[in-house]
């Protein structure tokens, strides 16, 4: 069964029917937003059932759209959280990626500014590595990007997409060895992105990130995960009552190769480890469970089939 990421937008009226339908299809609801009279669902559903969902949602004035980034957690790395980079461009990029379904975390580096003095601490590096992809928001000068890039890529294992003021071709020329993706013409700016060419640039980010994510998906498909992260999320939501007490909007974040559970590690890790997925198979058998460097959360990384020899 191939699951495809979608966004459903519709009214509150009878939306529970849509929720039931997605569950009956064997799909997973990653996120549910209720905004006034509107419901926005981000879900993974079986590819062959999209038409059924569209047919059912039509009388409810619902809209089903493909959302390529649902089920991914992306780090938007800003060189600092000073007025120079906030709220534009950092928030604009993070917010736009959310509309495409991604769960974005903004990471403001403590000492990221400056080409010579810019630094990446081990904590920042580890946090970035917990994500599926990192977007680096650099400045407008190629001299600076060229000089600071080696420092900022050291130890980073996830694909990096670089945004900067110079053109895409210039970025490709100055960054060596190459990174996963480039977006030119989007460096430091201090106004809100609302002009058509600026929005086009944000669309370009979504496109580039989707391309990189697809590459990563293809890589994962070659050695599939022992359990899909979305299913893992469902199992945790079913079996750990404490998760429903968490006030965070997304208590269990689905990543491409794991999940982030927003519960403290020490009291809950053992409980999660022992949860049974299917007859005799526990979460600990198919996942690495470790403390996240983001607050005190629990990070689950699913082992591939080649390591466990099972698919559940």
């Amino acid at each position: 069964m191939i699951l495809v990421p979608i966004t459903y937008k519709g009214g509150v009226f009878r939306h529970d029917e849509i929720l039931d339908l997605i569950e009956d299809m064997g799909g997973y609801i990653i996120q549910k937003h209720m905004i006034a009279q509107e419901v926005v669902l981000q879900a993974l559903i079986p590819k062959e059932d999209i038409e059924i969902l569209k047919t059912v949602s039509r009388p409810l004035a619902g809209e089903v759209k493909p959302a390529p980034l649902v089920g991914t957690e992306i780090a938007v790395v800003s060189m600092s959280l000073e007025i120079h980079h906030l709220p534009h461009a950092s928030c604009d990029v993070a917010e736009y990626l959310r509309t495409a379904g991604a769960k974005t975390n903004m990471i403001g580096l403590a000492r990221g500014f400056g080409k010579r003095i810019g630094l990446l601490s081990d904590e920042e590096r580890d946090i970035i590595n917990e994500h599926d992809l990192a977007i680096y928001l650099f400045g407008n000068f190629e001299t600076c990007i060229k000089e600071k890039m080696p420092t900022f890529r050291r130890g980073i294992q996830v694909p990096i997409v670089v945004c900067g003021g110079p053109t895409k071709e210039t970025l490709m020329k100055i960054i060596d060895p190459p990174v996963a993706g480039y977006i030119g013409g989007l460096g430091r700016f201090m106004h809100r992105t609302k002009e058509p060419h600026e929005l086009a640039r944000l669309d370009e980010i979504v496109e580039e990130v989707s391309r990189v994510i697809d590459q990563k998906r293809t890589g994962i498909a070659k050695d599939p995960l022992s359990v899909t992260p979305a299913r893992l999320m469902d199992i945790i939501l079913e079996n750990v009552p404490a998760i429903h007490e968490v006030t965070s909007p997304i208590p269990v974040v689905v990543q491409m190769d794991g999940t982030r559970v927003k519960l403290p590690y020490d009291p809950y890790a053992a409980e999660i480890r022992e949860i049974e997925i299917e007859a005799g198979i526990r979460i600990a058998d198919v996942c690495d469970i470790r403390p996240s460097r983001m607050r005190d959360y629990i990070l689950l990384k699913v082992k591939p089939f080649s390591e466990t020899g099972m698919l559940v």
């Binding site: 400045g139 000068f141 190629e142 110079p166 053109t167 460096g187 430091r188 700016f189 201090m190 106004h191």
Partner: peptide, 21 residues
């Protein structure tokens, strides 16, 4: 003015926004 014309143009927009704000 800048030794990097592309960066200079982008900084012109930044300066203009900041002065207006």
């Amino acid at each position: 003015d800048s030794t990097e014309p592309v960066g200079g143009q982008l900084y012109r927009r930044i300066a203009s926004t900041v002065i207006t704000d």
